[in-house]
């Protein structure tokens, strides 16, 4: 469970997050909002890439912001990026296994490989695990990134538009994978997406940002019917 209070981020005159107070309950939660609403910035705060000027983030009762950014992976924070960032130079299995190399207690190389292969199977990448990621199509790279996010014992998984640019049937497969993450790993998932069908299918609750402010939060179907939310999306995209 995540409790965010009064979170504010400033880039000069831009205020991408403006006093955001929100709770994310266990399971998969959606985070939506029009372009530039501050969703990625919110993830960047959780990752430690961006320092907020005010506010606090409690994850399972712990103060996440107190940890150095590179130690958050050890804590159990995982994420994917809006522009997919699987490591091209490395093989599929090394990409996934390396997530455990900086987490003490992940066992030896063989154990890490075993865990990586389990994650690769979990997301359903059907290629030789020793293939270089650089040679894979976009869909598989996305899945490699998701496998990186679920391998081992994640506690909080942040997915930043994992379905962007994927055709419908791939998105459906991805949705099945995302839905199984909390059950399979025990992690809390926050999903940022513009594809409302995917959000509706994966998330029980959803929060909505607009210009850095929280404008709605609650059960996904109610939120997607909310008038203010529809208004915020008008001109950009209609929620499904």
């Amino acid at each position: 469970m995540m409790e965010i209070e009064g979170l504010t981020v400033r880039f000069g005159g831009v205020v991408p997050l403006d006093g955001v107070t929100v709770r994310f309950e266990a399971g998969t939660c959606g985070l939506i909002g029009p372009n530039g609403a501050g969703k990625t910035t919110f993830f960047n705060v959780l990752s430690g890439f961006v320092a907020p000027v005010a506010g606090s983030v409690k994850a399972f009762g712990e103060d996440l912001l107190a940890l150095a950014h590179f130690r958050r992976a050890r804590w159990g924070l995982r994420r994917t990026f809006q522009t997919e960032q699987a490591i091209e130079e490395l093989s599929v299995v090394d990409n996934v296994a390396m997530m455990l190399e900086h987490v003490p207690g992940s066992g030896n190389a063989a154990a890490r490989r075993e865990a990586a292969i389990e994650a690769i199977e979990f997301v359903g990448i059907d290629v030789d695990p020793d293939t270089k990621v650089g040679t894979l199509p976009a869909r598989d790279r996305r899945l490699v990134e998701v496998a990186r996010a679920v391998v081992g014992k994640p506690r909080l998984v942040l997915l930043d538009e994992p379905a962007a640019g994927l055709p419908d049937e791939e998105t459906e497969h991805l949705g099945q994978v995302i839905r199984r993450i909390p059950e399979a790993t025990g992690a809390q998932v926050i999903l940022v997406e513009h594809d409302m069908t995917l959000v509706g299918a994966c998330c029980e609750t959803t929060a909505v940002l607009d210009f850095g402010k929280l404008i709605a939060s609650g059960p996904t179907d109610e939120v997607l019917r909310d008038e203010q939310v529809i208004k915020a999306y008008l001109g950009t995209e209609e929620p499904a």
């Binding site: 890439f49 994420r79 997530m99 990186r148």
Partner: peptide, 13 residues
């Protein structure tokens, strides 16, 4: 080499 944010997210110091 590919992306420092991705490295940080993987817990690389």
């Amino acid at each position: 080499r590919q992306s420092e944010p991705a490295a940080l997210a993987a817990g690389v110091n």
